[in-house]
Nucleic acid binder design. Structure first.
Length: 616
DNA sequence: ATAGGGTTAG
């Protein structure tokens, strides 16, 4: 153009802004001032400020604010709104509030911007306050307001508020849109009302990928993992193309089921669909591989990722920790610091539990008392519980007990259970029984603790103790949870129940178990018959041990898969001592890698050893 | 003649 004016620049800048080229808008702003010597007006500044928000350019945003002050454009509504959004986006609540209050006149967009900004940075009560103010000042609510307010209800998990807002929306008679539909489903999902969310979904006239993903996420958040995976097939059938959020949800559903078959297929599909470099997909993949027991797969995804954020680092660190790989976890943690990524609350849970696996008591306390302080992270219950685990794992049971008594925090049942299982491993039954009392006082229905307690009595050969526990369980009507193990072979899941002969191939499986046990006896396997609490002959006790669900699942997988294939088992309870020592030797005689995910640990058995170093 | 705010995720 031979001659350009502010409107020419403004038109171009708006076009770029709306297509997502925020950085380019800032470049144009500079050129307009320097090349054409033009003075920006309120249109230019509104767009430029928004571009600063969208591209994360804080410094430039502040410079624009200075420009606004110098040029006296502050009293234009659009400019004010853009400023409020800029400060909200950069989580400067005070700055946003200052703009909000210092310039008279706030419209719907002003309030929408500040509420959204507050929610996005976790200022929920402040968000609620602004909403009340908006209502008090009788500012009109539009669809964007409703979307934001439903977001507020989701985060507060406040169903009552959600229902009130939904009613108000229906009465307002405003035109409904897809943003609203997704926000409503999200609200009901996060407030635990999955069937209402589904009803909203079924009532949608049109659906896009976000509506689908929102309902899948609602199923996920309500523990309906298989339903989520099933519904995805329906989504594909209707020709809706999944995006990176969809894959994150589905991978998470697979992780929760420990379904590596689904996880693997989804990984392939995500790559084919071009989501290889999306952070949330990478993070979900790390999580999926780690939770399905394939920690090498998790690391491979991690190393291949082009872009990482703090969740990426946290995922691989806690993945390594869950697998008992303390050295690897700490090495990645140091890489994280070197890469300039700031650790957070969650990072240190993984780091401290890694110290636990390595028995590094001093290093753990250094992180807790010094590094966390330096980084401005206040230790919480989870961190202190890691310290209890760390001390007790190192055999310092009484130090752990003292630590618990001297730390001013309200301990939960998890912390006491940590100390309890340490007492079991270190065979300190005196302290163990005391701690078990505390655990049962806090949670009288905890079946695992009764089992642990009666095991401790049995190990100490206190048969009266065993009888007392069993009486107690009968009196309190505590039913022993059946032991379940499952394994995925090709695309089928096979479930095994302890002491259950109803499997069609039961005979073969038992024969295979017997064969394996006979093979490992010469290597030192001694059946732990003391742990069998049935009143039967010794020989039969040995047979009962062979009926544990993980032994059945392992025998079956070995029968049905090629000779070098890894064996992966998931079970619902804690692995017992007998199975643990048996499976170690089985990994040796079969030359297989056997991974068992029990209720809270991963055990990777290889060549006669377990990754948990016999502490779990 | 040119301008602003929203949904799903780890």
């Amino acid at each position: 153009m031979h001659s350009r004016n502010v409107v020419s620049w403004s038109t171009l800048m708006t076009g770029l802004f709306q297509k997502g080229f925020a950085i380019e808008v800032l470049g144009l702003f500079k050129n307009m001032v320097l090349e054409d010597n033009l003075c920006p007006n309120e249109y230019i500044l509104a767009t430029t400020l928004s571009s600063c928000s969208n591209s994360g350019m804080l410094k430039e945003g502040l410079q624009c604010h200075g420009y606004v002050l110098k040029t006296g454009l502050l009293f234009h509504q659009y400019v004010k709104n853009a400023l409020v959004r800029m400060y909200s986006t950069f989580s400067d609540v005070e700055g946003a509030t200052r703009v909000l209050n210092s310039i008279p006149g706030s419209d719907t967009v002003t309030f929408n911007s500040i509420i959204h900004g507050l929610l996005d940075h976790g200022y929920l009560s402040e968000g609620l306050e602004v909403l009340c103010r908006m209502a008090a000042e009788c500012v009109v609510w539009d669809n964007v307001t409703y979307v934001n307010v439903f977001g507020l209800c989701s985060r507060l998990k406040d169903l009552k508020l959600g229902l009130q807002v939904h009613s108000r929306m229906l009465k307002s008679g405003d035109e409904f849109d897809l943003y609203l539909g997704s926000a409503i489903m999200d609200m009901y999902g996060k407030c635990g009302q999955i069937s209402v969310a589904r009803k909203v979904f079924d009532g949608l006239q049109t659906r896009n990928v976000v509506s689908w993903t929102a309902i899948l996420a609602a199923y996920l958040q309500n523990g309906c993992f298989e339903e989520a995976l099933k519904l995805f097939l329906q989504m594909e059938l209707e020709g809706v193309v999944p995006n990176e959020y969809t894959f994150a949800v589905l991978l998470n559903a697979s992780s929760s089921l420990s379904a590596f078959g689904y996880g693997n297929s989804l990984h392939a599909l995500a790559e084919k669909s071009g989501f290889r470099s999306h952070i949330i997909v990478g993070n979900a993949l790390i999580n999926m591989y780690s939770k399905t027991g394939i920690i090498e797969g998790a690391y491979e995804v991690f190393t291949d990722m082009l872009y990482r954020d703090s969740i990426t680092w946290n995922s691989i660190i806690s993945g390594y920790s869950h697998h008992g790989l303390g050295k690897e976890a700490l090495a990645v943690f140091h890489d994280m610091l070197a890469a300039g990524e700031h650790p957070n609350y969650v990072t240190f849970i993984g780091v401290l539990s890694a110290c636990g696996h390595l028995g590094r008591v001093q290093e753990g306390f250094y992180y807790l008392h010094q590094l966390m302080e330096e980084m401005g992270i206040k230790p919480g219950l989870e961190h202190y519980t890691c310290m209890v685990g760390l001390l007790s794992k190192a055999g310092l049971l009484y130090e752990a007990e003292t630590f618990m008594k001297s730390t001013p925090i309200e301990w939960d049942v998890v912390a006491w259970r940590t100390l309890l299982s340490a007492c079991q491993v270190h065979r300190n039954y005196v302290l163990g029984k005391q701690v078990a009392e505390i655990v049962l006082h806090m949670d009288p229905d905890d079946v695992g603790t009764y089992t642990l307690l009666s095991n401790m009595h049995a190990k100490a050969k206190s048969w009266d103790g065993v009888a007392t526990i069993r009486k107690l369980m009968r009196r309190r009507d505590i039913k022993k949870e059946p032991g379940l193990s499952w394994t995925e072979i090709r695309n089928d899941t096979h479930i095994f129940v302890s002491d259950d002969n109803s499997h069609p191939e039961s005979n073969q499986i038992h024969e295979k178990v017997k064969e394996l046990l006979d093979k490992i006896k010469p290597l030192g396997y001694v059946p732990d018959i003391a742990s069998v609490l049935h009143d039967v002959e010794e020989e039969q006790k040995e047979e009962y041990l062979g009926h544990h669900s993980e032994k059945l699942a392992i025998a079956y997988t070995i029968l049905k898969t090629p000779s070098r294939a890894p064996v992966r088992i998931i079970k619902n309870l804690r692995m017992c001592d007998d199975c643990h020592s048996a499976v170690k030797l089985m990994s040796k005689v079969t030359n297989r890698v056997i991974t068992v995910r029990d209720v809270n640990h991963f055990h990777c058995f290889r060549d006669g050893m377990c990754s948990c170093a016999d502490y779990w």
